[in-house]
Amino acid sequence: MVTPTTGRDLATVGGPGRGPLLEISHLSVRLRMRSGPITVVDDVSLEIGSGEILGLVGESGCGKSMTALAIMRLLPEAAEIAGGSVLLDGEDLVRTKPERMRQIRGAEVAMVFQEPMTSLDPAFTVGHQVVEAVRAHEKVSRAVSLRRAEESFERVGIPKPRERFDAYPHQLSGGLCQRVMLAMALVTSPRLLIADEPTTALDVTIQAQILELIKQLRTELNLSVLWISHDFGVVSEIADRVAVMYAGEIVEIGETSHMLGAPRHRYTRALIDSIPGRGEPRSLLRTIPGQVPDPGARPAGCRFSPRCDAPVSECELIHPELRAERDASSFRCHNPVA
């Protein structure tokens, strides 16, 4: 069966600290449809070390966000976890009680979404929202929670926090809103931060600041981060390791610098080649033909084979298994990049 990450030297799992903080094993998520259930996350295994930043990369519709929502147990109504486990420091989040899960959300695992403007409540001041985040988890006085909120604002680099408390989300810029979201996520000192495309809507200069900030928080707080993005460029800046997802499954996982220099899976290679910004000015970009297949209509063999530039005869017939390499990376491909 699939042995993507087991049996590895744990020392290679990310940065400082102990073994993995989060251990996802064989996680599957099903979507109930009128035509029958379809699997949107298919047997995904991942681990994130304490203080490690793991990038999760793939195109829209490949199951990245569903994986994140499954960890948080915030899946939409029509979706359900069909199997597998999500161990946070040994505690299985898939099987834990809803009350306990509510404590974990925010306090131990926090999430930041793509659209800061729509994730904040427009009807309340940002100060109120951050204070509420504190008081949802801890029985502390208003004064204490205010101070905590202020510290959190300072930590994410919002100048003059007290003055910003009275602002409504629409009065702040996109970058500032994203910082408020981060402040809110970090105010309860979670151990794991799940960031779902948090910089997509931002200018490049602001994006660079946020990336810098996350790296700094990782060092200061030993924060673990699951960084979800469709943009390999951004992930290359921030992640220690990268997992590439395609059509619901992990197709390659490994150390960032290693993967970028020598991707093995053809999809990883194609994703890297399609990033704008390299090559001569005015040169045509390499692109990936076609689209991610619908979860209900995936090819029988390798799911990427219809779009692959170097398919061999097995590809159409046999679904490739995730192969572990000696350097603790693994990939599923019949005809890997040499």
Binding site: E59, S60, H230, D231, F232, G233, A270, L271, S274, I275, P276, R282, L284, L285, R286, T287, I288
Partner: peptide, 15 residues
């Protein structure tokens, strides 16, 4: 757009 789709649109515009 997704990065992988950006390329196809950019190429189209250039062509």
């Amino acid at each position: 757009l997704d990065v992988s789709v950006q390329g196809t649109i950019l190429n189209l515009l250039v062509t």
